[in-house]
Design a protein around this nucleic acid. Sequence first.
DNA 1: GTCTATACAGAGATAGAC
DNA 2: GTCTATCTCTGTATAGAC
Lengths: 219, 219
Amino acid sequence: MAALTPAAADSDKRYAAATMAEPKPSTKDRIMDAAIETLKADGITGTSARAIAGRGDFNQALIFYHFGSVNNLLIQAALRNSKSQVERYGREAQGISSLADLVGLARRLHGDDLQEGSVAVVTQMMAGAANDPDMAEAMLDAFQRWIQVVEDGLGDALEGSPLAAMLPKREAAYAISAMFLGIQLMTRLDPDRSEADSLFDMMDNMASMFEGLFPALDG
Amino acid sequence: MAALTPAAADSDKRYAAATMAEPKPSTKDRIMDAAIETLKADGITGTSARAIAGRGDFNQALIFYHFGSVNNLLIQAALRNSKSQVERYGREAQGISSLADLVGLARRLHGDDLQEGSVAVVTQMMAGAANDPDMAEAMLDAFQRWIQVVEDGLGDALEGSPLAAMLPKREAAYAISAMFLGIQLMTRLDPDRSEADSLFDMMDNMASMFEGLFPALDG
DNA sequence: GTCTATACAGAGATAGAC
DNA sequence: GTCTATCTCTGTATAGAC
């Protein structure tokens, strides 16, 4: 589960540099980091060039020099993050061998993500995507990667079960991804954020039920 | 909170007047209508007092006179719409008697809603809710009404089935609502908007399967 | 590649005439 | 209750010095 460094940074470049002594982030990466942080903290309406530059402590004009526009910066930052997210999720999904495992993983990722705020960023970008086709395309791209991870995990979870033949994996993965997204969004609105817990409990029970009804043929 | 001005004539009055000859909307209602339309068309980032006023063809200052701030206008408009939505959804959900019915209804509502754009508004408001607690509260309120409708529909669909005893309805309703929301959001990103169809097909099959496994005891 | 300075459009909001 | 006019702030974006 462990990343290479605790500083587990996001961009490809930083991963490449993570083995070296000083993974000093490039300016572009610093700007993208600040953009994501601003999105998390202030939402899409508060994410201006000035706000981003203030948070990252660099000059506002750098955004336009490096990315041309604020929206393009957000798109690039989202794509960068989504790729590293999918890598991480994919790694986490290794070794899944049952639906119960899958639910357990989802529960844990939900908790982590609620802390970290990746889906909060998604919400903000999705809102921004409404009047920016390029941003919509980037979000769609991100979702498709995500669904693929779920589909793979589902394949592992159902291997050897008769359910594997009955369940269209692509559609199921789409449904699960949609649900996960929806749960995150709703949970974020709730100040005490408790309802999702019992939901995952329910899914645990459902998973047990399914696996009781359709026991795996092999391991 | 109370209606100090006579024009506090809320949407309720307008709906009540719908049976009369001329249901001429109040100014407040016209402003709220324009706000919703602007949210659909231009997203939260494009929804300014000027944009709303331009779309509804009234003076910008009226927004501040009647609602105090743009954000408060959005909150009031969202609450008004969510209430009427829930009424409508509740009506549609009457007469559900099976899971297949429920899926059918969901499919139809998905289609309608994709046209009409209610969930598009939700997306935008949710993004706005990130840095406005009042807006978050309003959205949470709206979601809870929605979940209640689903819970009721689920109760009707499972009446007489052994599933009714096995499935915690509140949690299931929460999960279904979350999934519906997620599907809407994802679908909106996709230019050709096709993936949801096969998803509803899958849910149809799942519903049949469930109802084959757990046949209703009575009608 | 980074900074300062600045242009200019659009934002929210209010005052005061009508 | 509605309008015009205006204040002030913040937004994106660019020019040009370093």
